[in-house]
Amino acid sequence: MESEEQASEPRTGGFRPQIESQKFSSENPFFIVKIMQDNLSRSRTTIPNAFFTKYFKKKQPNVKIQFENKLWPAKLLYYPSLYKAYISSGWQPFILPSNLKAGDVCVFELIKVEERVLDVHIYRADG
């Protein structure tokens, strides 16, 4: 696994989705994000800085989020002085159809480097 973002446990859900997501394995690069209420109310989610700088070019902001064979176009934001990167516009349209909730854990797998497609695997907090 390339890198991972960790956050404190939300009040909903438990450690099960986090433990299950740790078992994810792929030849493709991937990163893990635990969904917090902040990810749902804001229009972005974090990409680990090391992952962003290794696999994405700063001047190419377009990416596609894939879940259950559906694609959502999104934009990447990068703030080098803050060492922060985000999936921005396109994140909110993805939240509702994917039924994301606080406590879920998402594995973002880069399945097509040239086309910049991130396949999302969701480990549900509610089982």
Rank of each mutant, 00 (worst) to 15 (best):
M1L: 11
M1C: 13
S3R: 07
E4L: 15
E5S: 14
E5V: 10
A7T: 10
S8N: 09
P10A: 02
R11I: 13
T12A: 12
G13N: 02
P17D: 07
E20N: 09
E20A: 12
Q22W: 14
F24P: 03
S25F: 11
E27V: 04
N28T: 06
I32K: 08
K34Q: 09
Q37L: 10
N39L: 04
N39R: 05
T45V: 14
I47Q: 01
N49C: 09
A50M: 10
F51D: 00
K54S: 08
F56D: 02
K57I: 05
Q60W: 10
Q66V: 13
L71P: 11
A74W: 04
A74G: 05
K75T: 13
K75D: 12
L77Q: 10
Y78P: 00
Y79S: 11
Y79K: 09
P80K: 03
P80L: 02
S81A: 13
L82M: 13
Y83R: 15
K84W: 11
S89R: 10
G90N: 03
F94R: 03
P97T: 03
S98Q: 07
L100T: 01
K101D: 11
A102E: 09
D104N: 06
E114G: 08
E115S: 06
E115R: 07
L118I: 03
D119L: 12
H121S: 07
R124F: 05
D126S: 08
